[in-house]
Structure formats: structure tokens, C-alpha cells
């Protein structure tokens, strides 16, 4: 085990059982003439109900790591285990079922279906989930009860991202993976979106991993992991999670 993973364990606390265990995870993209090493033997544990912030510059490998944790991609080597699911050995059908049953995604550019209203975008997920909350409840949770029949083009960026969060949490996922959820938003709107994520983590108990290159957001998490060039270079366990009023960027 690398020194980083040891420090991670110490930072996370040894008494808790991780929901995710990633060991020696590497990802190499074969681009024909060149091979891109996006992840290099990364170790990571993620715990139940935790809010983890992944910091790093563009190209540091944080999105690749998130995609592998979310079952959108598979590692070139190493193992990723979610509870009793070995994601690194899973085939496409198992990964699809894993994503359907356990994971919610929030993307930087919202990725709402433009031809569906806010409510229908959420229903797109609740239609196939096992025990979802009603779409109206999910939208109410993010403060958009009065905007649910609007199409994405009729919503502001912040509202679209909140719809995306409602869509992700409506299926009551075990883990919510957010890739730059505030990346396309201004400060105030970004804070509203983060407030919703913090609320979901606190009230629903969903494990959340947030990718950002905004270091200020790290203060909101239980733990902060910093990545650079495909490796984890720093683990920090916050003594306490800061409130949104305390952070600025």
C-alpha cells in the first residue's frame, strides 16, 4: 500500500467500513500513437454518508477516477469494489445494473434532455429505478416545485443544475458522483447548488463525491483529496465541515 493510502486510512478513520475500495487503480487511454496514463495506481476508500471533495487541475485524473467509481468506465488495472460488487471485473450488463441501482450523476453541463420538462427529466430516471421518490418530491427538495413543467431552455443555469441534482437523487442512490457541479455557474448560483448537495448528504445520508478545481469548496467536505498527474498527492480530513456562508471564491 502506498504511503498516500495509509494516510488516507488514517484520515478517514479505521473503524468505518468503506462502501468503495479502490486499490492500485490505473487507467491508460490508447490514443493510437500515444498512451495517456490518466490514473496511476490510485488507492481510495469512500465511506457511507461521507462528502468527499476531489480537487485537482484539468488532466489530473479526477474525472477518470469518478467515472470508474460510477461504473462509466473500467480500470486498465487494479480493483474497485463497491460493497460486494467488484466493478473492475464486471461486464457491461453488471455495470449498467450497478449504475441503475446505486449511482446518481451530476455533470458540469447539466446534461438535461432538452425535449423533456424538468419533471420528465427526473422521471427519466424514476421510470427505471427500484424505489424512487416521486419526481415532484425530488424537485421540491431542490426548490423547483414551481418550475417542474418548464423545459431546460426555460430554466437558468443554476435551475438546470438543480434539476440535474433532483434527477440524480430521485432514485435514492447510495452514492452521488458530481463532476464539476458548479463549474459553469456563478458564485451565488454555485452556492445554491452546493447547498442542495449538502442538504441531500445531510438529510438523505447519500454518500457524495464532488469533483472540482475550486479549492474553496474543499472546506465543505468531510475529506479532501487532491490529485495531480493521475495520482493522489494529498489527503485532508476536515475537523468540521464549513458552512456555505464561510466559503468564498
Amino acid at each position: 500500500m502506498t504511503p498516500v493510502s495509509e494516510s488516507l486510512r488514517a484520515a478517514a478513520g479505521t473503524q468505518r467500513v468503506p462502501v468503495f475500495r479502490a486499490r492500485g487503480v490505473s487507467k491508460v487511454y490508447d490514443m493510437g500513437e500515444v498512451k495517456v496514463h490518466a490514473l496511476k495506481a490510485v488507492d481510495l476508500d469512500l465511506f457511507q454518508g461521507e462528502l468527499l471533495v476531489l480537487l485537482g487541475a484539468s488532466g489530473s485524473g479526477k474525472s477518470t477516477l469518478l467515472n470508474i467509481l460510477g461504473g462509466l468506465d473500467v480500470p486498465t488495472s487494479g480493483t474497485v469494489v463497491y460493497r460486494d460488487h467488484d466493478l473492475s471485473a464486471a461486464d457491461e450488463r453488471e455495470l449498467t445494473r450497478y449504475r441503475r441501482e446505486h449511482v446518481g450523476f451530476v455533470f458540469q453541463f447539466y446534461n438535461l434532455i432538452p425535449s423533456l420538462t424538468a419533471r420528465e427529466n427526473v422521471e427519466l430516471v424514476t421510470d427505471i429505478a427500484r424505489a424512487p421518490m416521486p419526481a415532484t418530491q425530488a424537485l421540491d427538495l431542490v426548490g423547483l416545485a414551481d418550475r417542474m413543467d418548464h423545459f431546460p431552455a426555460q430554466l437558468s443555469g443554476g435551475e438546470q443544475q438543480r434539476v440535474a441534482i433532483a434527477r440524480a437523487v430521485a432514485k435514492r442512490p447510495d452514492v452521488l458522483l458530481c463532476d464539476e457541479p458548479t463549474g459553469a455557474l456563478d458564485l451565488e448560483t454555485g452556492k445554491r447548488v452546493l447547498a442542495v448537495l449538502e442538504q441531500v448528504n445531510r438529510e438523505v445520508g447519500t454518500t457524495i463525491a464532488i469533483i472540482t478545481h475550486n479549492a474553496a469548496i474543499g472546506a465543505l467536505g468531510d475529506r479532501v483529496i487532491r490529485m495531480s498527474s493521475g495520482v493522489i498527492v494529498e489527503h485532508v480530513r476536515n475537523e468540521r465541515r464549513a458552512s456555505l456562508d464561510e466559503i468564498q471564491w
Binding site: 449498467t96 449511482v103 446518481g104 450523476f105 446534461n111
Partner: peptide, 16 residues
């Protein structure tokens, strides 16, 4: 392209 990705990300199978 991204809508296909979103559908798959949320657990829609290749068949669906």
C-alpha cells in the same frame, strides 16, 4: 451523443 451518454449513465441498458 451526450443524451445517449446520460441515458447510459443513469442505467439504461444498450438494449433500451
Amino acid at each position: 451523443r451526450t443524451e445517449v451518454a446520460v441515458l447510459k449513465a443513469f442505467g439504461y441498458s444498450d438494449l433500451e
